[in-house]
Design a protein around this nucleic acid. Structure first.
Lengths: 244, 244
DNA sequence: CTTGACTCTAACGCAGCGTGAGGCTGCAGG
DNA sequence: CCTGCAGCCTCACGCTGCGTTAGAGTCAAG
């Protein structure tokens, strides 16, 4: 019956001495005995327990969970395993979502001339906010629509927007009747541009509206559309003759 | 030009007051000014910066990284993004590997009568140790072979091993010549059982040997094969007439 | 003037150890 | 016997990103 010191256990297991001290301190693995000088001495049983500890930790359990699992019986352990699976699945799902966003940004970086700091931050911001107001499915739908339209058309749209916004802003500031002839063309253009984004999906349309209401500040900064302009544009569109 | 107190900023952003204090303390977001009473006052610029902070944090950056990214220019930020993508990919890969192991254990739990504590721990242990000595590809290969063989055959093998081991141990203890007639049948059986696991893959065979050498203690406990027996068995197999 | 809602600073707590500091122990060589 | 050196011991702070009291000042309303 041989007893080992911390250093020896450390070499055999690859754990650090400090870690063994820690396990002792928190009651996870107590040495079998102490030498006269106070040296920790571990026996076979402790090595086995340590093996178990390492294994469970490798499965992602916290030290508390490991202790609980070892001190309680197999049913508890089995249950803990299932819980751990569930937790892990969830975190992986989150990480995946995150990765998707990061990769999208990465693509935009690779594809674009966009190395300007503010633009980059705006792009990031936009994706963050979108995450907040659209469901995963909706984002998926939007992405697919984007692929259908193609890069070129998207570019056109991005160029078209500022003009429409500028026109609408001017009309509003001149107090023109939103239902008037002159505003009608602008309203039609606006409407079609929005449909190009929503694809006619009512849910997406709704989320979009909510976002513009809640995040007025940020969206205004990014698009130049403030609540007043939005209201004006909505009235103009509402005044359009039936379906275009 | 309106200034906001912590509470107001908190309500607008959803961050806690404590968080704002923290960001102030660590220099990530300093208030624009302080009131006479020492209240933190934030302006528009700070709100924008805060927006950026939140966005970057949502991408998984540490506060230090966020500060670095915001204080340095866009190139740094872009670079950091790429790094973040790489890091995330790696952690996801790890998590996936972990999940795979956990799910395997889950299956065994669901399928088996194995609710005994020691057995469960042994199973976990085995998978942990295998992870250590076999490459991912090898494990994949082993898994596929397992599926090819089918549950039933695996069960048979698991039953056959103890008998062979017992026989070989007895032969060794009786000091029988490993090359003798009597031992030959045992050696053949042993050899074929090993091949059933390795599938004839030299790499897997090698990893298996390494594992048995390095983890003598644990494997002996789990299989009943100690180094001496292993050596004896190897000699017996080496003495077999050419290919079986 | 009192209340209640808000603010301030200061400081511990969390998980799981890493990383010293400062001080014994135990064995080998001179 | 003394000296070294490796190994052991016990504190105890540090890291991340805040949560959470605790004690105390501030502001606007009743």
């Amino acid at each position: 019956m041989k007893l080992l010191t911390v250093g020896e256990v450390s070499r055999r297991t690859g754990l650090t001495v400090r870690t063994l001290h820690h396990y002792d301190a928190c009651g996870l693995l107590r040495p079998a005995a102490r030498s006269g000088a106070g040296y920790r001495l571990y026996g076979e049983a402790e090595l086995r327990r340590l093996q178990h500890i390492v294994s469970l930790k490798a499965l992602g359990f916290t030290l508390d969970a490991v202790r609980a699992g070892l001190d309680a019986g197999a049913p508890t352990l089995a249950e803990a395993l299932l819980q751990q699976v569930a937790r892990l699945r969830e975190t992986i799902a989150c990480q995946h979502a995150l990765l998707a966003r990061l990769e999208q940004l990465e693509q935009q970086l690779a594809a674009g001339e966009v190395i300007d700091g503010d633009t980059l931050l705006s792009t990031i911001e936009a994706s963050t906010i979108m995450e907040k107001y659209f469901t995963t499915e909706q984002l998926e739908t939007i992405k697919q629509r984007g692929e259908m339209l193609g890069t070129e058309r998207i570019h056109e749209v991005e160029l078209a927007w500022p003009q429409v916004i500028a026109g609408m802003t001017a009309a509003m500031q001149l107090n023109k009747d939103p239902a008037s002839e002159e505003v009608r063309l602008l309203a039609q253009k606006w409407h079609s541009l929005v449909r190009e984004f929503t694809g006619g999906d009512a849910g997406i349309q709704h989320s979009l509206n909510t976002m513009f209401k809640q995040e007025a500040g940020t969206t205004q900064q990014q698009t130049g559309i403030d609540p007043a302009l939005m209201a004006y544009a909505c009235r103009a569109i509402a005044a359009l003759p039936a379906q275009a």
